[in-house]
Design a protein around this nucleic acid. Sequence first.
DNA 1: GATAAATAGTGACCGTAGTCAATTTATTAG
DNA 2: CTAATAAATTGACTACGGTCACTATTTATC
Lengths: 194, 194
Amino acid sequence: MTRAPQKRRLETRAKLLTVAKTIVATQGYSALRVEDVVAHAGVAKGTFFSHFGDKDGLLAVILGARMTEFLDEMEATPPPTHPEDIAIRLTPMLDFVAQDRVIFDLLLRYSGTTGAEVDAVITESFTRQITMFAGWIAQMQAHGQIRADRDPALLAEGIQAFLNHVLALGFCMEHEKQPPAQALAPFLSCWLVR
Amino acid sequence: MTRAPQKRRLETRAKLLTVAKTIVATQGYSALRVEDVVAHAGVAKGTFFSHFGDKDGLLAVILGARMTEFLDEMEATPPPTHPEDIAIRLTPMLDFVAQDRVIFDLLLRYSGTTGAEVDAVITESFTRQITMFAGWIAQMQAHGQIRADRDPALLAEGIQAFLNHVLALGFCMEHEKQPPAQALAPFLSCWLVR
DNA sequence: GATAAATAGTGACCGTAGTCAATTTATTAG
DNA sequence: CTAATAAATTGACTACGGTCACTATTTATC
């Protein structure tokens, strides 16, 4: 049977996370180097990988926490009552993801995993997000604001698809950069209204 | 002004491409190593990068050619007359992209670029695809098969979004693997019919 | 406390993408 | 034909993620 982690291990992990978060905060996600993290944390490289599996594992922990914060905020505010509101609610999260390609890539990669270990945080935040969307949709359907002839789960997944689409577009076309939330609007209105 | 490339350069480029295509054909995209390519082509590493910029540049050339083939085939066959037909038309291309994560990642990365140099092939194939979708849609709208209250361009972009969505899902969830074209169907029907 | 077993940590080493000053080869001008 | 210039190629070198056999530390057993 598996033993509980020792105090020392928890401290090491905390050290690594603190250093990583500092680097991310000061230099951004794409500037994060495993070698810098271990150097500043004063541990060996192997230790890093024994804790997080790989670089993405660390990023998943940090990003998962951030996503959870966004979800908490969204669930704390009243749900949108019109399709146009959805894009507004999502703006902070979209702007966050749009800020760095690294974030988007990692989220996309983990977006539908069955969530094995460390990265479970991200997986969970995704299912939570879809569930939240479905809740919004059911509500709006009940109030006759949007089409009611489809399963909220399908419509929720569709929103996710459009989210990723506008984010991907934002990274590709440097020109004519409208904010992602704005690009999202026409898709949502078409997707939810018949 | 820029001079035309010398014969030697074209030969080198052809050699590199031939070797790369062979490796891809026998071992798959994810097994491609720049070092193997240059070794088999009998040129130095720097030469590779002077030709393709980076590894993705080479992949873009190869993938761009493949995508163009798919588009040629699709344009050679009569356009779909019903939403359900769309998924069927797309099946070969979807299966191809779904076969290897490397393909999907690269396509996604280049999907909306303004297309500077080498990678222009991919960019072009994307705009061509969207245009083709829009054509299909306009046709179906004219025949009253699908909703006609939205711009074909928007609906075409939406299809692209769903394409990427089902592909991404397919890579994440190893379990319950339905073919991408099948996963696409419900989204298309909801997206195009009101 | 001694010793065995499990857990934590180490750092030299590897694989592979990408860089660039130097060199070789082709083209043009006189 | 030769010198000057431009194009093409070279390969040693760097950056960085990731591995693993080994050492060190903690915990359990008697």
